[in-house]
Design a protein around this nucleic acid. Structure first.
Lengths: 220, 220
DNA sequence: GTCTATAACTGGATAGAC
DNA sequence: GTCTATCCAGTTATAGAC
């Protein structure tokens, strides 16, 4: 039987189960026993493959960060190449967001869980600084560079703050809390990945323009 | 000795300690023993005053929500009164944010902890929906109403989404993760409450305008 | 209201057999 | 690589004395 697909190796099943549970309940809200049960493996295997709990969390978090970083960097490089090195604000923001959307649109549950986890980590005062810095800040610095080049007259402080607001808007949406659905009485759904970025991009671009390209003493 | 200020009642010391620890570590990352130690009281007192752990969390979360809601509602009513019932977008967004800023500027550590806790809850898929809905959504609905009245031609879906981006930008800043400080190499500090809202308000207002007042088939 | 004492249980981690 | 068995520190929660 050559066309029999073997079950995923147990170490991978562990990572997938951990990803989902950490995204839902955070680091302390999840037990190794809970992960083992969800993965259908023995508890002792977690220790064998990944060592202590914190190490397992880091492996889960890093696994897809590298893939996402590469996709985003490629999108930025492409935008720069196709614009003769002068990408528009829309192109820069899109290069940051569209790769996320592409992963979500594959329907892969693993990516949905992972992105919710990123939303959780980004808002955690304990995990946020260290994990986001290690995994994403090198790439974010590259995007900030592109923004500075696009708006050379802008106060850098305003670019960082605008990025912070941008990051918050994104991560709350990734976190999948269901709140907008409840607030809008079902009119809007967080899972509506098709349209959310079509709205987020103009929202964010308008904010950047206002903060970084309009000077209070000058026009408007 | 009539001008001797007594120490805060133990039940209040418990709430203050719980507020700080929950804000830092979330619900599951905090133990009742840790709270009792931080408050300088016996563990059994937590149970005596507040019952089970979840109930204590809810009391902590509700305590200041009501104060904040009232301040925000008053700010909105004032904006409506002073504008003949037609507050500008800036006025509405300011009525939502400036009361938070006022509480932060008092320097009261309790408010800083509480607002970080709100940031954490808003991004939690377990706690976010229920707690935010119960504590804040009635007031938020009132603000959405004001936004709809200000932009009667806007697609309501776009108003809800813009609010979602707004809410994310705010809560990430409240969460006090220290990330923007690290990313900007110390150039920006989350604790710089004096200026952050002066930037957040125009950022958000520009986003609302773009999403809700410009029609793709029409101008710009 | 407050503290002592403890019940009843769950947590992470690992030694050692297969 | 995998599972059985177990250690034991730490957890919530409460009964009962003061």
């Amino acid at each position: 039987m050559p066309d029999y697909t073997p079950p995923a190796p147990k170490s991978e099943r562990i990572l997938n189960a951990a990803e989902e549970l950490f995204a839902l309940h955070g680091f302390d809200g999840v037990t190794l026993r809970g992960i083992a049960t969800a993965a259908g493996v023995d508890v002792a295997l977690l220790n064998y493959h990944f060592g202590v709990k914190k190490k397992l969390f880091e492996v889960v978090f890093m696994r897809r960060a590298e893939i996402l970083n590469e996709a985003r960097l490629n999108a930025l490089l492409e935008a720069e190449a196709s614009s003769g090195g002068r990408p528009s604000l829309e192109q820069i923001v899109s290069a940051f967001l569209r790769p996320i959307q592409r992963f979500q649109l594959t329907g892969d549950e693993g990516w949905r869980n992972y992105l919710a986890l990123v939303g959780w980590v980004n808002s955690s005062s304990v995990w946020g600084e260290e994990m986001m810095h290690k995994s994403f800040d090198p790439l974010v610095a590259r995007f900030i560079e592109a923004l500075k080049k696009n708006m050379p007259d802008a106060d850098p402080q305003r670019i960082y703050w605008a990025y912070q607001f941008f990051s918050g808007a994104l991560t709350l949406t990734l976190a999948q809390t269901g709140r907008i659905g409840r607030l809008s009485d079902g009119l809007c759904r967080e899972s509506d990945v098709e349209t959310v970025y079509d709205l987020m991009i103009p929202f964010v671009v308008a904010g950047f323009r206002k903060l970084c390209m309009e000077h209070p003493e000058g026009g408007a």
